[in-house]
Nucleic acid binder design. Structure first.
Lengths: 356, 356
DNA sequence: CTGTTAGCGCTTTCAT
DNA sequence: ATGAAAGCGCTAACAG
């Protein structure tokens, strides 16, 4: 293992000079730079990140906090983050919260002690009552760069990137309402925290706008997973006043709901219209192909990383945000509401997606 | 930031004693332990991993090298790794190779300099000609614990975990042959490296066993993605002697192939039987549900991490391996071969999967 | 069982 | 523009 001293000696300069050359911050004469670089090459020198981290408390590591890497939305976002960060020579430490605020707190602590230079939290699982927000906000007050995606922290001046999920949810409800549905359920997630918040809000707002009533039994909190979707739909189907359409908090839940319907012998979309959220790659391949609200997952991650990079360079700069659009992708899990009097109109299956 | 000195002072002991207490290796009197722990609690002390890493060259970090976190197989495996490792207080640094041996080399270097305590490579992209193997093997000779999953390194005594993919591929071909198919193509991946190797071998062996001929045009190397599958199938369909069935290197490719068929107006499985590999969560939800060879992705990751943990504790121990079974899951993308004389037998759609 | 003493490899004032 | 020297916070012999 060759150290900065070896290089310094071979180049005939002081170790501090070598350090300066490698961190290209101070002004060094061109010839010194050349000598140092040559010596470094000769000796195959590579600075030790631990030592430099210890001395400078900059580690070129950032922590990415997501709910679950197995969720395709999260993994796509993660890839966006990594691709951006690696160009700046940062590595990404990915940790999972499973949507549990306590676990989020734990992993946050863990990567904090590891000395990461910043965090991306996608999304923060903020329950308003919580010490969790406090913890994150404390970190920020200590000068730790944080950017959140999806939600942002109340009362904190934070960089964040988000999609117009609320608008997306409204578009989904509009679509369903135009098809004649009035009994529209909202399924999945915790409506008071995490990603569900904006979607839930959009759902309610659109329902109100259309003059549709919000039946409490049509609002189900579940696991954000295939499982959760199946359970929720099963419960919904056992209701005396079952809805004719649902908006799921994400595609996984929607897909699970489709499964549950199929298990009960229901046909989609004839017997139940379903809209998902995210447009994960498999939404298009589902049976039938899923109508959903597409979110730019990769780009959300990439942009979040860019904001973080800026923040880490200029901690004093004003907070920025990037807000990306969602779009409704109409496929084949939604169709016109079937009354007792009219026959269902056949689903279009022209191959191409229609986008709103 | 409270340091080990603060704790030592408050507990009335030497810093090294505090260190010993926290690393629970040496023998310390019970009362000293108690005093130290109390002091640590009082001061809210948390050891600094960078400092300890620098001094001891143990960082409690491990590098996980995968092809792409967006691939559901990889992300499931990654989660298995993380879940195992985090119990031992390690963090996982995930890097992507995109199946490119050069990139693999680059990321390997990067995490090596970061001082990880070990690697999991899933799978190594070994081209036999390559300096890549040398690099990995050199790392091992330097004492760096490595475990590979899927493939293993030639000529190296390495821990690895793998599934019986070759047997799985054979089972898939058996299944197809029993259905009367003889023109069976193999689609996707590089047959000389990465995950494809074993599957390709199994395919060939089974074809031979059934006395079926290996037509060179039926062996397509493609991207391991939806895209790649679409392209490959499109090419296959333009062949004068088009196959009646394909075994895809993984589910993504199979799903892409289904898409291509659909775009050309072909019906699955009537016009083309398709078998995938991996059994990602969406295989079951595809249209039609995909017949595939299931691999225990999460468990592969979990077990790999366990082996690595053992190796990091006892570097001298003999190499171990864990070999897990694959199983054929018959769903609805395969059906009996339709000759000119006989009508196709209808696909079963009894809801439940049949497993071999 | 515990204390003393050197570092681990780099960065960062403070000089010059 | 460059050098000297004092750490960053912890661990690991070596004593005792």
């Amino acid at each position: 293992m060759t150290t900065i001293y070896d290089v310094a000696k071979r180049a005939g300069v002081a170790p501090s000079t070598v350090s300066r050359v490698f961190n290209k911050n101070a002004s060094i004469s061109a010839k010194t730079i050349a000598r140092v670089m040559q010596a470094a090459r000769d000796l195959d020198y590579d600075p030790n990140p631990l030592a430099s981290g210890l001395a400078s408390s900059r580690t070129l590591m950032v922590g990415l906090v997501i709910s679950d890497i197995q969720n395709p939305f999260s993994s796509t976002l993660a890839r966006g983050v990594q691709d951006s960060l690696e160009r700046a020579r940062y590595i990404t430490i990915i940790v999972n919260t499973d949507g549990d605020p306590n676990k989020e707190l734990g992993v946050l602590r863990e990567i904090y002690r590891r000395g990461v230079d910043g965090f991306i939290i996608a999304p923060p699982q903020h329950s308003n009552a919580a010490e969790h927000n406090r913890y994150i906000i404390d970190l920020m007050h200590k000068g730790l760069p944080v950017v959140t995606v999806g939600n942002w922290l109340k009362d904190a001046r934070v960089d964040y990137v988000t999609s117009r999920a609320q608008d997306g949810a409204m578009a989904a409800v509009d679509h369903l309402a135009e098809l004649g549905h009035s009994a529209i359920a909202f399924v999945g997630g915790h409506t008071t925290r995490g990603v569900a918040v904006g979607r839930w809000l959009g759902y309610q707002e659109a329902m109100l706008q259309h003059g549709l009533s919000l039946c409490p039994e049509w609002m189900l909190e579940t696991d954000v997973s295939l499982q959760g979707g199946e359970e929720a739909m099963t419960r919904l189907l056992s209701l005396p006043n079952r809805p004719s359409a649902i908006l799921a908090v994400n595609d996984l839940v929607a897909l699970g709901a489709i499964n549950a319907c199929r298990n009960q012998g229901l046909q989609i979309p004839i017997d139940m219209s379903i809209v998902g959220f995210d447009d994960i790659p498999y939404a298009a391949m589902a049976m039938p192909p899923l109508t959903t609200v597409a979110q730019p997952a990769y780009e959300l991650g990439y942009r979040a990383a860019e904001l973080l990079l800026q923040r880490m360079r200029a901690s004093g700069a004003p907070a920025q945000q990037a807000i990306l659009d969602c779009r409704l992708v109409v496929r084949q899990t939604t169709t016109a509401y079937r009354t007792e009097l009219t026959k269902p109109s056949a689903t279009k299956s022209n191959g191409a997606d229609r986008e709103s």
